[in-house]
Structures are given as structure tokens and as C-alpha cells.
């Protein structure tokens, strides 16, 4: 049996009479690249916050990396990585300082941080920039560094919230190479994106509409199911019917 890294069943988050997340159920396998799509306001961020151990669900069940979101949120946080377009690194720290800081926060022993950070900086081609402030780096480099930092402590799962927004098309593809590599090493990837070509790079995709999971399958199967040529069309058909809009 394949190992399940995320299991959620009827997961619900209610704010007053508003169901931000309404009985969603899905499972994610180890090493899978799982795309989490939906229009603005569909409930993606709320669901992601629950899975990261940052918010309690109202009802339903969810296990992340083998831990219960109700009782073991702290254990979950230790076993996941997170990066978003909005916040990922401290701009006023250097490249190496950021690696040390996040490595330290996640409990990687200092000697190991030192050993591996030189390696990492070299792999990223940032040797000359290692002692420069992150704020001075181009966006694409920042995002690649942020991803490396998010998986530096070798988490079971990494959550990526629109990691490639605004990044140039070449760097965007280099970023996906890194995602593939991480997935091949056994890290599960949970990713949101507004780029529909990136949806195609995922093993499986969910599309949320108005708090519910309206579609869940491989890109090829979804296209067949909706008789669509590309994911853009699949997404448009599903999301167009949405009643909610928001952030």
C-alpha cells in the first residue's frame, strides 16, 4: 500500500454561517506533486492553514505526516515546510543567514547547517551572493532560495502557496525542476498556482469551488472528463459557476 502523507475526510471550517471549507476529502501519497487549485475565495488558503497546523477545523478529520490537526499541530509544523510568494525569506538577512535562521528554527543541528549550506549555495549558483542581503537578489533567485530553505530540514511535505507568481518563464521552469527533484527524493509537494500550464506538471489536481472539492484527478483524466483541450478550460468551466469571490 502506498504511504498516505495527507488524509482528510469531510474537513470543514465554518466562520459564523459561512462555510469557508465545506466537507472536503482527499488523500495525498508520499512523493506526489499535488496541485491545489481554485478561484480566489474558493477556500484554498483556509484549507492550507488547517493542513499546516495553523488553524483548527470546525469538523471533519485530517492527518498530516501522520499527525492529527486537532491535537498534534506542533508535530505537524516540525514535519512540513512552507513557502509563499508573499513571505518566504528575511530580506534584511544575507543568503547564508536566512539558511542558518530557518535551519535553526526547524532544529537542524548547527554543524549540519554549516556543512549543508555551503553545498546548497553552490548548487544554486549563489556562491558570490552568499553574504549579500536577500533583498538585493532578483525575484527568481529569491524564490529558488526560498524553496531550498523550505525543504532544508527535509520535511515530509512542503506547502507552496503560489510560489512562481510574477517569475519569468525560464526561472519558473527551473523552479519546477527543483520541485520534481524534491518529489523524486520523497518529499510530498502540495502546491497552489494561477498558471494553468503548471497545473499540468502535477500528478493530481484538486479544484475547489465555493469551499468544496469539485474535481480531483490527474490532469489527463480531468481533461478527458471535461472534454477540454487544456487545464485552463477545465478550470474555467468549473470556476465560472462559483458564487463566491474574494481573497
Amino acid at each position: 500500500m502506498e504511504e498516505k502523507v495527507i488524509v482528510c475526510k469531510d474537513l470543514t471550517k465554518r466562520f459564523g454561517d459561512f462555510y469557508a471549507v465545506n466537507k472536503i476529502s482527499f488523500e495525498v501519497d508520499k512523493g506526489e506533486i499535488f496541485g491545489f487549485l481554485g478561484a480566489n475565495g474558493a477556500g484554498k488558503t483556509t484549507a492550507m492553514r488547517i493542513l499546516c497546523g495553523l488553524s483548527h477545523p470546525t469538523s471533519g478529520e485530517a492527518m498530516v505526516a501522520g499527525f492529527d490537526v486537532y491535537k498534534q499541530a506542533e508535530e505537524i509544523k516540525k514535519n512540513i515546510g512552507y513557502m509563499s510568494q508573499k513571505f518566504s525569506l528575511y530580506e534584511n538577512l544575507t543568503v547564508l543567514e536566512n539558511i542558518e535562521f530557518f535551519g535553526g528554527v526547524y532544529g537542524v543541528p548547527y554543524a549540519e547547517i554549516r556543512r549543508r549550506s555551503d553545498n546548497l549555495v553552490q548548487q544554486l549558483g549563489l556562491t558570490a551572493e552568499a553574504k549579500k542581503l536577500v533583498g538585493a537578489l532578483p525575484l527568481g533567485w529569491k524564490q529558488k532560495l526560498a524553496f531550498s530553505v523550505a525543504i532544508f530540514h527535509q520535511p515530509r511535505i512542503v506547502f507552496l502557496d503560489e510560489p512562481t507568481g510574477g517569475v519569468d518563464p525560464v526561472t519558473r521552469r527551473q523552479f519546477w525542476d527543483m520541485i520534481y527533484e524534491a518529489a523524486a527524493s520523497g518529499i510530498t509537494i502540495f502546491v497552489t498556482t494561477h498558471y494553468m500550464d503548471e497545473a499540468e506538471y502535477c500528478n493530481r489536481i484538486t479544484i475547489m469551488v465555493d469551499g468544496k472539492v469539485e474535481a480531483l484527478d490527474s490532469p489527463a483524466n480531468l481533461k478527458a472528463q471535461f472534454k477540454a483541450d487544456n487545464m485552463d478550460e477545465v478550470f474555467y468551466r468549473l470556476a465560472r459557476g462559483a458564487k463566491r469571490s474574494g481573497d
Binding site: G38, A39, N40, Q85, E162, G165, G166, H194, M196, D232, F235, Y236, A239, R240, A242, S245
Partner: peptide, 13 residues
């Protein structure tokens, strides 16, 4: 200036 950045496909259309 980037009126559609971060906006979903439906709103962009």
C-alpha cells in the same frame, strides 16, 4: 500596472 496579478482565471477573463 499588473491589474490581473494574483487574480484567478475567471476574474482575469
Amino acid at each position: 500596472d499588473e491589474p490581473t496579478t494574483g487574480v484567478d482565471v475567471v476574474s482575469r477573463k
